[in-house]
Amino acid sequence: MQIFVKTLTGKTITLEVEPSDTIENVKAKIQDKEGIPPDQQRLIFNGKQLEDGRTLSDYNIQKDSTLHLVLR
């Protein structure tokens, strides 16, 4: 499925993911596309910070959902 990740600069990254993917996996995909190390990434969905060990389906993230990427 496709999800979107919006950065603070207003750029939107499109990712191909599975609901069973962990947040860690998603961060690795963002690193592949953008070169941002996962330990600098914080992903936010519906105002909640997403934890590495959880999956997209844990957070009820579905296709065409938009996550927000904050760098630390």
Rank of each mutant, 00 (worst) to 15 (best):
M1Y: 07
M1Q: 04
M1V: 15
Q2E: 03
I3N: 00
I3S: 00
V5F: 09
K6A: 08
K6I: 09
T7F: 15
L8D: 02
L8I: 11
T9G: 11
K11L: 11
K11H: 11
T12P: 14
I13Q: 05
I13Y: 08
L15I: 08
E16I: 07
E16Q: 09
E16N: 15
E16G: 14
V17G: 14
P19I: 09
S20R: 15
S20K: 11
T22N: 13
T22K: 15
T22P: 10
T22E: 12
I23M: 02
E24G: 08
E24Y: 02
E24S: 11
V26G: 00
V26E: 00
A28E: 05
I30R: 00
Q31P: 02
Q31W: 04
D32P: 07
K33N: 12
E34T: 06
G35A: 04
G35K: 05
G35S: 10
I36K: 09
P38W: 10
P38Q: 08
Q40A: 14
R42Y: 12
R42E: 09
R42S: 15
L43P: 01
F45D: 07
F45K: 02
N46G: 11
N46I: 07
G47P: 01
G47N: 03
G47F: 06
G47E: 06
K48S: 08
K48Q: 07
K48H: 07
K48Y: 04
Q49W: 02
L50K: 00
L50D: 00
L50H: 00
E51F: 08
E51V: 10
D52E: 14
D52K: 10
D52Y: 03
D52A: 08
R54G: 09
R54I: 04
T55I: 02
L56W: 01
L56N: 01
S57R: 14
S57P: 11
D58P: 01
I61P: 01
I61D: 00
D64V: 07
D64M: 07
T66H: 15
L67S: 01
L67A: 01
H68Q: 04
H68N: 04
L69E: 01
L69R: 01
L69N: 01
V70S: 03
R72Y: 14
